[in-house]
Amino acid sequence: MELTLDRVTFSLDGKTLVRDLSLQARSGQVIGLVGPNGSGKSTALRCVYRALKPTCGTVLVDRLDLASLTLRESARAVAAMTQDSTVELDFTVEEVVALGRAPHLRGNQNLSARERDLVTGTMARLDICHLARRGILTLSGGERQRVLVARALVQEPKILVLDEPTNHLDVRHQIELLSLLRGLGPTVLVVLHDLNLAAAACDRLAVLSHGRLVASGTPEEALTAELLREVFGVRADVVRHPRTGDPQLLYALIPHL
């Protein structure tokens, strides 16, 4: 399914956090949203999963305006793994994953046999079956992230948005999680801080600065030395990964080098 942001603007208390953002993600693509702190990445994402309502502009899923749908209807199309995924109560992992079916079920309707298989299958895919009966609050950061991804996938979304999913993860889990996003099925829109990982994991990157889109394209097109200097304020050399060919950045901590 296609995800389109058409001139999305979001202002709060007179401050414009996202201005005229237009983006398009084709079916099955992984689009990375990168930019310095406060550039409006998370705000843009929150407009997609409807935690915020754009001041102007529209978010379209296959040419259908999300704002014309009820929250339940759009939750069947768009799943999100939010940054602030605090769980209050000690649900079991299995329960949390099963709650991904909430937008598809009426009231307390039980999960069907197919849905139970879906839950088990998704947990197997993310290698969390052995945690099924563990309390979510007892898990480590990496385990918990995988549980939340599983919950989002069980939602069977057409669009999956993730806000810094690699936060708090060690490097191995970062790589595991991001390689999982490729070939997942749904179109993925992901906010990432690590530009090297973003370059490796995404089909296309969109670079935001002060709420505006300043560059977009393949990682190679988007991540140039000039852009890194102007937008991120860092000097970096862009090299090719010797094996994958992805652009990778080398930072120099000493300015005059």
Binding site: R50, S74, R76, A80, T82, Q83, S85, V87, A102
Partner: peptide
């Protein structure tokens, strides 16, 4: 149950 997952997540679950 969904409410206990946090406000943002609740919205994303409809």
């Amino acid at each position: 149950d969904v409410m206990a997952l946090g406000d943002e997540t609740a919205v994303s679950l409809g």
